[in-house]
Amino acid sequence: MREIQASKVTETVARLCMEANYDLGEDVLDAFKQGLKAEESPAGQDIIKQLMQNAKIAADERVPMCQDTGVAVVFLELGQDVHVVGGSLVDAINQGVKKGYGEGYLRKSMVAHPIGDRKNTGDNTPAVIHTEIVPGDQLKITIAPKGAGSENMSGVKMFPPAVGVEGVKKFVIDWIRAAGSNPCPPIIVGVGIGGTMEKAALIAKKALLRPVGQHHELADVAALETDLLESINKLGIGPQGLGGRVTALWVNVEVYPCHIASLPVAVNINCHASRHKEAVL
């Protein structure tokens, strides 16, 4: 068994929370450049330029690119030969979130009881943690802060298999059309197809971790990604919903085997601030 100190987890999570909120990925910055070329609306071009400028200010001045610094969503790939010592893993992560959001001047957006008094927890804890046990003796931590503007525009639908890929496409397009200007377009779209209700939602969120510009390895899934991106960008929603060609920068689809009677589909929308940073301990 390889031992990893809980305090090391805390330090790493704190650092990743700050970096994720300050430093927009090169993949998105490249997509802005492509988007600027594709956009025909003058207002849309202006908005993409402002988002590029915003990303530079955030990185240079170490301030969050968006005031909604999100729910701290944490993906763990925990090697089965790892032993976390010196405290609980979950506590270590939440301590890291508290430290990162406090010392990084990030907004605290979590309320303790969703239907109670909705009192803010004051330190952005608890994190939403998804853990996968994998072979090996390493711990991979990915922090993906998620804002509510785009998260609120996400959804899951359980289809009968007969709707097929055409039904899946229609659902995704209708969903993005209805979201319109709300999720801060240009958006990045994560789609999860298959599994069960919660699995579809989880792989839709995981799809958002794959770099913009990188297709799924299965040819038919990659073709669906291309098809969806083209269809979404025909909707005319455009940057900030003010009309234009660039509604989405990219679509990532993930699939998972499912029941003979099921075809679950989840759409998880991300705004341009596709924030995720990872570290391997």
Partner: peptide, 13 residues
């Protein structure tokens, strides 16, 4: 009025 969503660092100036 709409301001640019996601341009929080720029708007703060």
């Amino acid at each position: 009025f709409a301001a640019v969503g996601g341009a929080g660092a720029l708007i703060a100036k």
